[in-house]
Amino acid sequence: MEGTGLEKTIGVLNEKFEGEVLHAAMLYDFPTITLKKDKIIEIIKFLKEHPDTRYHYLTTLCGIHYPELNQIAIMYQLHNMMSGERVRLKIYLPAEKPEVPTLTTVFAGANWMERETYDFFGVIFTGHPDLRRILNVEDMIMFPLRKEFPLEDQVREDKNDTMFGR
């Protein structure tokens, strides 16, 4: 079941989006497909509606920062509950200006997931109905999950460098 899901999905993708697939592999038990970023929303919509794949459920969506590549990846995880098949789609965006169309037009549940990704990575989801920070305070200036931002709160005096090597 596992291996065929990947080949089937690639086959379906090649029907309409020839040349969009950059890389495809099974990572552990999970088919992972890296795609070009431009048509990602159409592709997800197509996979959702195509009778062979029917990925009708958006499991999750998140960002990953790669500072050495200067890129931010967005990972979409789709699921077909009837057949139990899942697929992970990845796109890479430039870290200076990460922009991608919103998925809320396809899945209503993408709304907060995209807001979270915006909050953490500063990815702009164009066309999003309400793209604001969701977890952090509104006047925050950093995008905390990017690697260059520090984890710790900077106000503590009890943890100094001599004691804890920070």
């Binding site: 499991t59 999750t60 998140c62 990953i64 920062h65 990972m75 995880q77 549940g109 907060w112």
Partner: peptide, 26 residues
């Protein structure tokens, strides 16, 4: 769900948690 990316280091490179509450509360 736990989506874990390991780069071979002592800590995860990225750990995303799929938290059901967060997703359905919207």
């Amino acid at each position: 769900g736990f989506y874990l990316i390991s780069d071979g280091g002592r800590t995860p490179y990225r750990l995303h948690m799929r938290r059901p509450c967060f997703i359905y509360y919207q």
